[in-house]
Amino acid sequence: MNPIDPQLPPGDPLVMLGLLASAILFAVGIVGFLSRRNMITMFLCTELMFQGAGLAMISYGRQHMDLSGQVFVIFILTVAAAEAALALGLVVLLYRRKETLSAEAWKELAES
């Protein structure tokens, strides 16, 4: 349990909302990643998770009044951009192979 100590001064509701939103975005991203089979949508879902992560960075940065959070968002953007470039290139390649975007078309890559 998390007792709310009334002696403590009120916190920043923006941070709370930001963190909640980040958690929700991340969770929704995971759900999407797990339940969609379109490879592009799956990557979009990873982007959703990036969004969630970024929002968390900003929120914590605000809570601690530190700019590192925002700096990390820059890196996140970098990685997201790089990932988008490469992943989408791969998707296009894969699509050319099988004429489908379904991730299930690549089942046989499994070891079993």
Partner: peptide, 14 residues
């Protein structure tokens, strides 16, 4: 979960 579809592994991981 381990039929070769990425999500199967992802579900386990997540």
């Amino acid at each position: 979960l381990y039929g070769g579809v990425v999500q199967g592994y992802a579900v386990t991981m997540a």
